[in-house]
Nucleic acid binder design. Structure first.
Lengths: 149, 149
DNA sequence: TATCAAATGAAATTTAATATCACTACCTGC
DNA sequence: GCAGGTAGTGATATTAAATTTCATTTGATA
């Protein structure tokens, strides 16, 4: 999905909700799409200031929520103070392994896990809208190696 | 595992770390084990005040972390402001489905998902210490039913 | 183009979580 | 059992994320 199409989808979403498509909202979405990985609102705001010094903090907060509601972002929670967001378009769905020592984040995909989730949800007649699988532990660099013992 | 045994395990953990086993720590662990479901630190504190009015807020925070470190509690994050904790002993490991409308939380077990997680982790030589799978969506009561359309 | 509600931005506020620090009490060695 | 040092506690202050408030601006429609 091209950037242009994503912007258009966002505009459409906003319109459908009876809201207004503003410069700020577009700028924030663009910056968010450009940002890599998992950004906090703070980080996004800092990035935005460079090109759009006038933009307000609250607006970034408000807009990231809109973007999330539109299904273009996912909220992550790596046990930090601030929440992080990542884009859901352009990349396949994936989950995260977080190294609790070096804080590195490894992304992985597992269609089989996804399928099992759907099975479980069906059993409970639960309609999945999103999910979040976070594995915490030690990455291959930080874990104790046998050879060192 | 009986309460008495859990307390003993906690004492042992604390001792092994060269820390001190205090009345407060015991009281907090007891209250936590008694509390049902998924409590916030705030809720736990309120509960504790009834029996132990002198107990401090900071101590509850500090101790819940200790309990977590000891492997007796898991940190949850249901996209709320405050974090929640649940006990990991006495119950089998499970994951959560959170209804974004009524906030109901459904617990489920899936050994198959667990196994797949282990497989993925192995592939990356990642050592799992804990994990968290949260599915967000609409529960069977809140989801739109075909019959109503 | 005028109108008006929605959106914005600056500042204030709320709230969770952490840090500080004087005082307390746990524990080890005697 | 007692003393001393030391980790723990609790009240308060502080930090930091997120939200609210409100006067002003701006987008879209009639």
């Amino acid at each position: 999905m091209e950037i242009r199409e994503i912007l258009e989808a966002f505009r459409q979403y906003i319109k459908d909700k009876g809201l207004r498509y503003t410069k700020q909202r577009e700028a924030i979405l663009k910056a968010f799409l450009r940002a890599d990985g998992h950004v906090t609102v703070e980080e996004l705001y800092m990035q935005l200031r460079k090109k759009h010094p006038g933009i307000g903090f609250s607006t970034v907060y408000r807009t990231i929520k809109l973007i999330e509601d539109a299904g273009l972002a996912t909220r992550l929670s790596f046990d930090e103070r601030a929440e992080r967001f990542e884009k859901t378009v352009g990349t396949d769905h994936h989950d995260h392994m977080v190294c609790i020592r070096c804080r590195r984040v490894i992304e992985f995909e597992s269609p089989r896990i996804e399928r099992l989730q759907t099975e479980v949800a069906d059993k409970y007649r639960f309609q999945i809208l999103s999910h979040r699988l976070e594995i915490f532990g030690l990455c291959n660099i930080c874990r104790p190696h046998k050879s060192l013992v």
